[in-house]
């Protein structure tokens, strides 16, 4: 569904991505892992169009979107869920969700999806008249994911959904991402929480200094000593069991 071919990008004369190749097949969950400052967010910006490419191309559904403005890419169904801190704090929860459906013209479908998002995240329904600046970290994360769903995406890209959240909340968020994927939405999760992300995803890429270091099936990456050395800690089995519950 998403194909990234030899993408170079950066800010001004500073090149951050140096030839990224990635693929996200339709219906799968793929994760992109890496620490701070490795180029994860830059890649997301390059794919969503906020940052122009220096070289390479990005294909979505077989269409070359490399030169498209961000709002055009979004209208094709390629939706980026922003980081949680980037909800609009001065708007209510419901306004934020309606904004997610900004490009849609079908009123009935939009309202139905609003209901659907509220069923997905009941806490958002309780808080719908509240300003989103007053929500807790986990609630805001649910809000930005819900806002992404309101666009009726073919593919969702999530920017560190576990950032700054308590482990229990992370688990809940990831379980929800899994539910979303089951409805047929392709998912790309950018994460630092390697263990959780690899349990969730089918395929993983590990980025460092603007290049993909390791890639492979998520199951294999979890037990790959090279990955383990750089990232993993704690018990995979525990998290895995908890996710299924």
């Amino acid at each position: 569904m998403l194909q990234i071919n030899d993408v170079h990008a950066g800010y001004g004369s500073l090149k951050i991505l140096r030839g990224i190749n990635m693929q996200v097949p339709a219906g799968e969950i793929v994760t992109l892992l890496g620490g701070n400052g490795t180029g994860k967010s830059t890649l997301l910006k390059a794919v969503s169009g906020l940052l122009p490419l220096m070289e390479g191309e990005v294909l979505f559904d077989g269409v070359d979107i490399s030169k498209m403005k961000p709002h055009r890419r979004m209208r094709l169904g390629l939706v980026q869920v922003t980081q949680a801190k980037e909800a609009y704090p001065a708007m209510t929860v419901e306004e934020n969700l309606v904004l997610g459906a900004y490009t849609r013209r079908d009123r009935a479908g939009t309202l139905a999806d609003l209901e659907w998002v509220y069923e997905f995240f009941p806490v958002l329904r309780e808080r719908r008249k509240q300003l989103s600046g007053t929500l807790s970290g986990g609630e805001v994360q649910m809000l930005v994911i819900g806002r992404g769903l309101m666009a009726k995406p073919k593919m969702l890209m999530l920017d560190e959904p576990s950032a700054a959240l308590a482990p229990k909340v992370v688990l809940e968020i990831f379980a929800n991402i899994n539910r979303i994927a089951k409805t047929g939405v392709t998912v790309l999760v950018v994460e630092q929480n390697v263990r959780m992300a690899l349990i969730l995803a089918q395929y993983g890429y590990i980025i460092r200094d603007g290049v993909i270091m390791i890639e492979g099936e998520a199951k294999k990456l979890i037990s790959d000593p090279a990955v383990k050395d750089s990232f993993l800690g704690g018990s995979v089995a525990n998290t895995s069991r908890a996710l299924r519950n």
Binding site: S48, K69, P70, T82, L99, G100
Partner: peptide, 9 residues
């Protein structure tokens, strides 16, 4: 963010 919402900024 407005761009990501599909708004023609």
């Amino acid at each position: 963010i407005a761009y990501l919402m599909g708004i023609n900024v």
